[in-house]
Amino acid sequence: MRLILMLVFFICCSTGGEIAMTYGMKQVGEPESFRPGALLRFIKKAISSSWIWLAVPLLAASFYSLLILLSWAPLSVVIPASAFNYVLGTFGAKYLLREQVSPKRWMGVIMVGIGVTLVLLA
């Protein structure tokens, strides 16, 4: 039971953090090039985004809960189980980030979800 609860906490923090980070990065825009100066400007702009700072504590919480999960269960259970993020994340991408999620993309995500379920039941 404690494993399931910790998994739910991890998935919520992880997906929420990633959605917030993606929203922030869409506002920042892509780097003009991969030269050091351009990358530094890119990082500077990213860390000035309030969305990134909303994402950081959520991702930190997901990171620490991942550490706890890793101390409780084998890597080959914990890591694929966290793939539930993809199902929740796709809903978030469609309804919060306004991405166009095609049937093929949904099918791919559902296959990932089924794969994750099989991994959990194994």
Partner: peptide, 22 residues
Amino acid sequence: VSARRWFGVVLIVVGVMLVGQT
């Protein structure tokens, strides 16, 4: 790692390949 778990991993990879075609 059991055969069922390997099958789950294969499904995940195939799903990812579908997403990669979009």
